[in-house]
């Protein structure tokens, strides 16, 4: 690939979002293989449509929207196929936390706290974990999230509030998370 290829600038810019997109793909699919396929599909769709993107558009947000649409289409397409059942947040969380090694030589408490928070986010229902990831991990604004999820900004606010409340209640049950961190009362 060279500078003469119109795809070159897209590749250079878009590859910096790979980790974020993969993280979002994992958030949506919770399966490594599916997530990798979804990332590949997203980049393919994006590079083909890149020429139609407005110059002042948010490339990262646009690619997140492409990924989510691709995932929704895939879910719709395979609706007749066997599908996973969303586990209850706490039950799923417990299953995931069980995978975190309780190693006496393990890393600092801070890292454990981080691992547990990540596992707690992964254990949230899909609608909650995607909005937490978009806002608190990826830092999108409410309006950008509304564009990605294709819903009103008001829906983003209310769903984000409920997602954080759920995450807070899950984290409240962990010993490694300081009570001060969780907060006594949800806003």
């Amino acid at each position: 690939m060279s500078d003469g290829n119109p795809n070159f600038s897209f590749t250079q810019t878009a590859l910096q979002y790979l980790d974020s997109l993969y993280g979002f793909a994992m958030t949506l699919t919770r399966d490594r293989t599916e997530a990798e396929d979804l990332v590949q599909e997203t980049y393919l769709r994006a590079v083909r449509a890149f020429g139609r993107l407005l110059p002042d558009s948010n490339l990262k947000g646009w690619m997140f929207a492409i990924m989510r649409n691709a995932w929704i289409n895939e879910v719709r397409r395979s609706r007749n196929a066997p599908h996973f059942v969303e586990l209850d947040a706490e039950e799923d969380y417990a299953r995931r936390v069980g995978r975190i090694p309780n190693d006496p030589y393990a890393v600092l408490l801070k890292n454990r706290e981080r691992d547990e928070i990540r596992a707690a986010i992964d254990g949230l229902p899909q609608g909650f974990r995607e909005i937490i990831v978009l806002r608190d991990i990826e830092g999108f604004s409410y309006q950008q999230i509304a564009d990605i999820l294709d819903c009103p900004a008001g829906t983003v606010m209310s769903r984000l509030g409920r997602a954080r409340q759920k995450l807070r209640s899950v984290l409240a049950g962990l010993q490694t998370i300081a009570p001060k961190t969780i907060g006594a009362k949800a806003i």
């Binding site: 980790d19 974020s20 993280g23 997530a35 928070i117 986010i121 937490i132 608190d136």
Partner: peptide, 8 residues
């Protein structure tokens, strides 16, 4: 929560 990212 924000320090926990990136999740993957």
């Amino acid at each position: 929560v924000r320090r926990a990212g990136p999740v993957h």
